[in-house]
Amino acid sequence: MNSAFTREINSILSDFSQERGNLIPILQHVQEKFGYLPEEAIQAIADFLHVSSSTVYSVSTFYTQFKLTPLGEEVVKICRGTACHVRGGPTLQRDIERRLSIKPGETTKDMKYSLETVACVGACALAPVMIVNNRVYGKMTPKKVAELFNGKN
């Protein structure tokens, strides 16, 4: 473990008291910093909270927010909520899967894109909705998807 990394982790941990209730907020901060939960971080958190690393691991794998592997530069999330579903969400998802040649939960080999699904972002009146790096794009059509991706590549 290099020392810069250790310093980063310690700086996050120093904002918290060593209570079990802080586990999820700590994981959220670590993920925010690194984009995922590095294995070394899991051990450091476990030591800090005096729990086993398997405890930290079991919590990390329960919640869909937490990732154990790095994500691509652009994280594309497709809403799979009900409002989006009845307004063309599945077509949107197939379109994007085809474009990126990956399925939800996967990252392209060049680490450019990751694809995920999300259960509603509360912008249901703009269905179908997708999110690219936290920016919400509403009322998506095959044409708008093409513009979005072709403009980028």
């Binding site: 809403c79 799979r80 909520g81 009900t82 409002a83 989006c84 579903h85 259960a119 509603c120 509360g122 912008a123 249901c124 009146a125």
Partner: peptide, 12 residues
């Protein structure tokens, strides 16, 4: 927590 996918009352 507003888990119901397709709802946004609590968010608003």
């Amino acid at each position: 927590d507003e888990g119901d996918p397709g709802a946004f009352m609590d968010r608003s």
